[in-house]
Design a protein around this nucleic acid. Sequence first.
DNA 1: GTCTATAGTCGGATAGAC
DNA 2: GTCTATCCGACTATAGAC
Lengths: 215, 215
Amino acid sequence: MRRYPCGDDTRRRILETAIELFAHLGYPGASTRTIAHRAGVSLPALQYYFGGKPGLHRACIEYITEDVRARLDPPAERAQRALADGRLTRAQLLELLRSLIKPLLEGLASERPQSWALFFARAQIEQNDALDAIHERIGGRLVTLLTEIIGRLLGEAAPPEPRVRAVAIVAQIMLVGRARPMVLRSLGWPDFAEERLATLQRVLWRSIEASLGGP
Amino acid sequence: MRRYPCGDDTRRRILETAIELFAHLGYPGASTRTIAHRAGVSLPALQYYFGGKPGLHRACIEYITEDVRARLDPPAERAQRALADGRLTRAQLLELLRSLIKPLLEGLASERPQSWALFFARAQIEQNDALDAIHERIGGRLVTLLTEIIGRLLGEAAPPEPRVRAVAIVAQIMLVGRARPMVLRSLGWPDFAEERLATLQRVLWRSIEASLGGP
DNA sequence: GTCTATAGTCGGATAGAC
DNA sequence: GTCTATCCGACTATAGAC
């Protein structure tokens, strides 16, 4: 773990600016000049802190995944313990499911200006390292947990079914972050302001619950 | 409607090459040089046929959306007529829903090499014209139809609910095309070869059906 | 109509002063 | 450690020959 004596918050500022610009302009479109300018540092500072453009991008991935992982970890551990403990009622299983889904939806939809979700979406399409990092730190564990819960909710079901359903549920939630403009257009909404987000959350949850056999 | 006396299939070849490269390298990453080279034409030919890089990209969008629209039109019109005709049983409504969803899934997942889906995904994030074209020619009508069908299936439900659910269903299906690498990794599948695609299709449909109250 | 050659712009990276 | 000034490569677009 390196220390950045004089530049710890400079580093932060560069990272957040870079995420914003990578998200809005794409990796090739966001020039190091623009990033440096908007972050209020000189061009060689990027070289100094991150070794170059690819290094900066990797650092952005780390910065984001680390944050999301931290937010997702507590409910994930709680769920894991509960599942290990033994028999759970249907209501308890649904509650576990909900506790895992809720922070994901909130985190993707409202917490950060939306740049994170866009960065996410772009990285997933453009870069392979990003995919690895996301899957390793977030996606893999989440899907495994959801699969376990769904498997119990569905009772006996052929092996791939719970996993496919878990992925489909994550997809429904991710769509808020990833396909935001398309979704807003289709819904005729201007944004995901609080009440609308709450509506979306409620409807999605009702749909998921129903797809698993109802409450 | 313009004619391209000597270059109609040249135009086609350029378009398909361009889609492939835009999809894999992104708009800024796919240089006109590379596109021209891979298509077996000279650099100025792109200028001649499409007026420049932006024009070429617009033409790609048109080429794809026109194809998808053509494939989606027959079931959409059939559904529209059926809905106008009057009372439909639950089974009939579900069958309509399925007839709209099926070509979408097949088209996105298998028909074209996957480049189309990637092009789609990129364009949706990067370009606004693409979003307009897609919504106008495909998404808007599809979501409206699904909303109508779902509204009837759900009986009385608050206004936004059927529409939100329609969008969520489209999202689940789109995920096959858009987040393909992520989905494959999460499922531990190498590809969407026939049996696996069929499994996916079956599970998704069962889940959708259940979320709307079962068969 | 289709090509070769080139102009003009902008990108990432670095050398060297402070 | 952080800056200014600069290099070199790659891109789009166009001018003009055939």
